[in-house]
Each structure stands twice: as structure tokens, then as C-alpha cells.
């Protein structure tokens, strides 16, 4: 049980790190959104479900209730993160942020 929690948490931190490196390294705004939207969703899901699992190690009514709330957070992040990404992308397109193109393919 503890090993599973540790594994989930470490993989969550790994994907958080990927997202952070991605947001620092990628060349343009739109590709940064890839790193931000996907890796953060997965990492938060992994880490938060690890917390929910660990919280169940003493089975009582209160801890089950708290784990339910933790799963609400997972569910909410799952819905909110793509929506936020979508809103930011649309705002960027309307404002007219230029996408990065490989040299030579730019019109």
C-alpha cells in the first residue's frame, strides 16, 4: 500500500517536472500549452489519487468522506484543466499571437 502511494506520488512529481521543463523550453505559446494542459492534468490526477489512497489507510467514516472530497478535486481538475487550456488558446487566437513555424515554411 505504502509502496503504491509512493510510486503514484513520484510519477506525479515526474510529470509535474516534465510540464515545468516544457513550459520553459518549448519555443512558442501554443506548444507550451501542450505541456501545461496535458502533463499538469495527469500529474495532478496521479498525486491527488495517491493522497486519497493514503488517506484510506485507517478505514473510518470520516476518512472515507475525506477521500470522496479528494476525488472531487480529481474530477474537477479533469474538467477544468482542458477548459482553461481551451479558453487561453481561443483568447490567444483572437488576440493574434503568432504560432511558431519551422524556418522556411513560414508564408
Amino acid at each position: 500500500m505504502n509502496w503504491l502511494v509512493t510510486l503514484l506520488m513520484v510519477s506525479g512529481v515526474f510529470f509535474f517536472a516534465i510540464g515545468t521543463i516544457g513550459i520553459l523550453r518549448l519555443p512558442d505559446f501554443y506548444s507550451r500549452l501542450h505541456a501545461a494542459g496535458k502533463c499538469d492534468t495527469l500529474a495532478a490526477t496521479l498525486a491527488v489519487s495517491a493522497i486519497a489512497l493514503y488517506n484510506l489507510h485507517d478505514l473510518s467514516f470520516a476518512s472515507i468522506l475525506v477521500s470522496w472530497k479528494v476525488f472531487f478535486i480529481v474530477f474537477f481538475i479533469f474538467m477544468a484543466s482542458p477548459t482553461a487550456t481551451h479558453a487561453i488558446t481561443k483568447a490567444a487566437l483572437i488576440v493574434g499571437v503568432e504560432p511558431w513555424q519551422r524556418k522556411g515554411t513560414r508564408k
Binding site: I23, A47, I77, I88, A92
Partner: peptide
């Protein structure tokens, strides 16, 4: 770093959004 130095305002919003996700997990921890 990205939230402070991002070339556009939207970059900053993405950075702040990511910080918020991390903070949620941090609060639980």
C-alpha cells in the same frame, strides 16, 4: 520564471494556472 518573464500576458496566465494546480496538490500534502 515563466509567469514573470513570459513574453505575452497569456504566457503568464498559463504559468499562474500551472502554479495553481501545483498549489492545490501542495495544500493536500
Amino acid at each position: 520564471v515563466r509567469a514573470l518573464g513570459g513574453p505575452t500576458v497569456l504566457d503568464r496566465i498559463v504559468g499562474v494556472n500551472m502554479i495553481g494546480t501545483k498549489t492545490t496538490v501542495l495544500l493536500l500534502l
